[in-house]
């Protein structure tokens, strides 16, 4: 019985571990391996990591792709730009998403699931189509410019497309649900008695928000922010379709190295560096989540 249970537990924990090993760890190791090899014009377009001499393996580890990445300012700029775009997008998503999540969490119970469905509704159409649709709205003879010209607010169309503006519009629009859903999940759980208690103790509505609601929603803010920040850093489609042409993001950089230059080692190096860059926020997220779980566990116990 005891043994059976332990075996069952191992199986339950083992399935995701196996999944991660097959679909994350192995590909990661392959990419890591490629990043340390030398590019060559062949199929595959990189040299093996070991060569055989006199029956013994001789390592042929090259740091050239990393050296290239660190010495070429193009890459550093691209990394910094990606982080900035991700950070600013996250802030915008938070600024737009928090009030929406708050309003849904405070709405009448009958309304909540309907409002949540509206948030998720865009997922029912293809992501690519929705981003394309923004081109139609933002381009020089697009809907927005046409309306502004028609009502006389503008005399010449303004360039909206392929600017930081259009990039942020696209990203915030696409990633907003990822901010709203975890925030809502957090805000919905708040005990309304705490708000009453705060009001009873003399706090005005804004103070109550600052001192009771906001601190308690920090785990939700953290979860939502990371769910936006992490994928936006490596975002490829939106910057390609809506973003600037003079400054490309790191995801685009990676794809260019891979498909256009066919420099797999450098592309792999870019991928590894993105990963390292994102490890920090991911670890942060896990710590916040663990703390939250511990507290909830303790509360449940008490």
């Amino acid at each position: 019985m005891q043994l059976e249970r332990r075996a069952g537990r191992r199986l339950v924990a083992g399935i995701p571990a196996l999944w991660l090993a097959v679909f994350f760890l192995v590909p990661f190791l392959i990419v890591l391996k490629i990043s340390f090899s030398e590019a060559q014009l062949a199929i595959p377009p990189y040299a093996p990591l070991f060569s055989w001499a006199h029956g013994l393996p001789v390592p042929r580890i090259h740091l050239s792709s990393y050296a290239y990445l660190f010495t070429n300012p193009l890459y550093l700029r691209s990394y910094l730009y990606s982080i900035m775009v991700a950070a600013v997008s996250t802030l915008f998503c938070l600024a737009v998403g928090y009030p929406m999540a708050y309003a849904i969490a405070r709405a009448e119970e009958a309304w909540r699931s309907f409002l949540l469905m509206l948030i998720v509704l865009p997922f029912w159409t293809s992501f690519l189509l929705r981003v394309y649709a923004w081109i139609g709205l933002l381009q020089n003879d697009g809907l927005i410019n046409n309306i502004l010209l028609r009502i006389g607010l503008l005399h010449h169309p303004v360039t909206l497309l392929q600017t930081d503006f259009s990039l942020y519009v696209g990203i915030v629009y696409s990633y907003l649900p990822f901010m709203i859903l975890p925030l809502y999940a957090n805000l919905e759980k708040h005990d309304p008695a705490l708000l009453e208690a705060a009001a009873d103790l003399g706090a005005r509505p804004f103070t109550i928000f600052l001192r009771v609601t906001l601190p308690q929603s920090l785990p939700g803010i953290a979860a939502g922010s990371l769910l936006v920040f992490i994928p936006v850093v490596g975002e490829y489609v939106i910057p390609t379709l809506l973003g600037r042409t003079d400054q490309i993001m790191i995801g685009r950089m990676l794809s260019d190295e891979f498909f256009d230059n066919r420099d797999w080692p450098v592309a792999s190096g870019v991928a590894i560096l993105i990963l390292l860059l994102l490890v920090v926020p991911i670890v942060l997220l896990q710590r916040v989540e663990r703390r939250q779980l511990e507290r909830e566990g303790l509360e449940a116990e008490a």
Binding site: A193, L194, E196, A197, D200, L201, R295, E299
Partner: peptide, 11 residues
Amino acid sequence: NMMFQSYALFP
């Protein structure tokens, strides 16, 4: 001032 049944202490 009110003392709540659930105590409503700020967690």
